[in-house]
């Protein structure tokens, strides 16, 4: 399944990057991220704990950075993310690409693409839910990041419940509708997150994605 989207945040790319590189900020921005740990130069491990609809869950994930390109105007990182929920007999693997580019003077666009494989029991149930949840997570993440960038909280749209992209500093085009989606082979749009730099910073990407997975798991556990 492919997911892709982009959203802007009210800060210059440099500032956004700086925040990306700050694990504390990221932990605060990523819904449910409780742990982020660097195993070595390229590999990270983390844990997401979340509660959705009164169900608590936790899921471990790992991220392995594949490539980084920082020198161009658009900075980009690719990573492979993996998570597993043993109880649900399911695993997930995401090939992710995240890019950050400037937009005007004081704004940056974060774009993501991900190719997600969801294997096991969840895989036969999840597609519409993932597509939907990915938007939700994106909204939450974008909102938190915007606040971290200094945007006034009360001017931001509510993320939960009926969150429809509004004309506030956080503008969120709907995930690119994929006009050619072929029902036999879901190829649509997608997204991945990413972070743009060698050291601790890329975690954000990993964490956002994995929190998506985690939410999905929680949602299904809740039995909807």
């Amino acid at each position: 399944m492919k997911l892709a989207s982009e959203f802007s945040v009210p800060a210059a790319p440099d500032k956004v990057f700086a925040l990306f590189f700050d694990p504390d900020t990221m932990r605060g921005c990523i819904p449910g991220c409780e742990q982020l740990e660097r195993v070595d130069e390229k590999n990270y491990r983390g844990k997401l704990v979340n509660e959705i609809a009164h169900v608590r869950f936790s899921a471990g994930f790992s991220a392995a950075i594949q490539t980084i390109s920082e020198d161009t105007e658009t900075k980009e990182v690719t990573a492979v993310l993996k998570g597993e929920d043993r109880r649900l007999g399911s695993s997930i693997k995401i090939d992710a690409r995240l890019a950050v580019r400037p937009e005007g003077s004081d704004s940056a666009v974060i774009g993501y693409e991900m190719d997600m494989a969801l294997w096991g029991k969840l895989g036969r149930l999840g597609e519409p839910i993932i597509r939907r949840r990915s938007r939700e997570i994106e909204l939450e993440f974008a909102r938190a990041l915007a606040i971290a960038c200094g945007a006034p909280e009360d001017k931001l749209p509510e993320t939960k419940k009926k969150a429809r992209p509004a004309s506030t500093p956080v503008t969120l085009p709907a995930p690119t509708p994929d006009a050619t989606t072929d029902s036999a082979a879901p190829t649509s749009t997608g997204g991945a997150v990413a972070v743009a730099d060698p050291t601790g910073r890329r975690l954000a990407a990993a964490a956002v994605l994995t929190s998506l997975v985690a939410l999905l798991v929680a949602l299904l556990r809740r039995g909807r």
Binding site: P177, T180, S183, P186
Partner: peptide, 13 residues
């Protein structure tokens, strides 16, 4: 209109 694409059809359909 804000359909979710899945095995039953893409967004345009």
């Amino acid at each position: 209109l804000d359909p979710i694409p899945d095995v039953r059809g893409g967004v345009a359909y």
